[in-house]
Amino acid sequence: MLILILKRVLISIPLLFVVSVLVFVLQSFIPGDAAQQIAGPQASPEMVEKLREALGLNLPVWEQYARWLGEVLHGSLGTSLLNGQPVIDALNQRLPTTLSLVIGSTVIATIVGVVLGVISSRGKGAAARFIDVLSIAGLAVPGFWLALLLITVFSVQLGIFPATGYVAFADSPSEWLRSLALPVAALSLTGVTAIAKQTREAMLDVQASDFIRNLRANGIPESAIVFRHALRSSAVRIVTISGLLFIGALGGSVVIEQVFGLPGLGTLAVSATTSKDLPMIQGIAVYFTLIVIVVNLATDIAYGWINPKVRTS
């Protein structure tokens, strides 16, 4: 297991490098740059050019990248071109918001999805069809639309939850929960349906297998069969989907944070891209990549814990 973790950490270094190069090259194709943004539309071309030189934006792309990489190797991600704030500070300030949202929606999606999946795998006909309809609806409904719907109903009409804004956990745990309720709900719907469907299929597969037949023939109570045997065997599939969901939710958070006005990495990514704040974009890419690497590693460790085949090989 230790070797597995070490391997993953080593592989992640070239991965980070490739991602950072890709993001750098891709953003260089976008017309305009931060100098134009900072100087504003009224500025003279000379002023913009001066600013460009000061920021090092006149250099060839590879040289700009080399400078950035140099900073990274010194343990910094540079400073924002717009306001001079260290990128790391800006990111760390916003990370908890995004993690609360993404972890929250993955956990909710997994718990609710597994419960629905197990119920539908036990029920005949109606329950199963309900989950099927729900899962198609869940995949078809776009998150931002659901978000607006939730705001209309729960914030505007019922006034139960705030429509926008974020309260840090440290400031007020209860307000933190309230501020996250709607975004998490909006972000987790797709996940709930995906997990429910996968759980149902996995449970049906396992329950058709001979070892479950054997337990039934031995008069083992259904509850023990479901929880001690079938669910445990289905867990590999559920964990796989959960890991994928987490990564999907990370992408989805960009839109959801925007809709709910949450000060997370997603909103920062949007504003940094529109203003072409290069170091900030790079920093966000690095953070997102790191999160994905950590999640994948966690998924692998979970596999080993659930499935002895992985553990021994």
């Binding site: 297998s209 001979d210 070892f211 023939a217 008069g219 083992i220 445990r232 065997s233 002895p308």
Partner: peptide, 24 residues
């Protein structure tokens, strides 16, 4: 309940050697 008591005297071996043991 009766099945569990019965299982002392009545057991089964099924066809599929890959599915008949819980892999976990």
């Amino acid at each position: 309940r009766q099945r569990r008591r019965l299982s002392r005297d009545l057991q089964a071996v099924f066809q599929n050697p890959y599915g008949s043991l819980n892999p976990t």
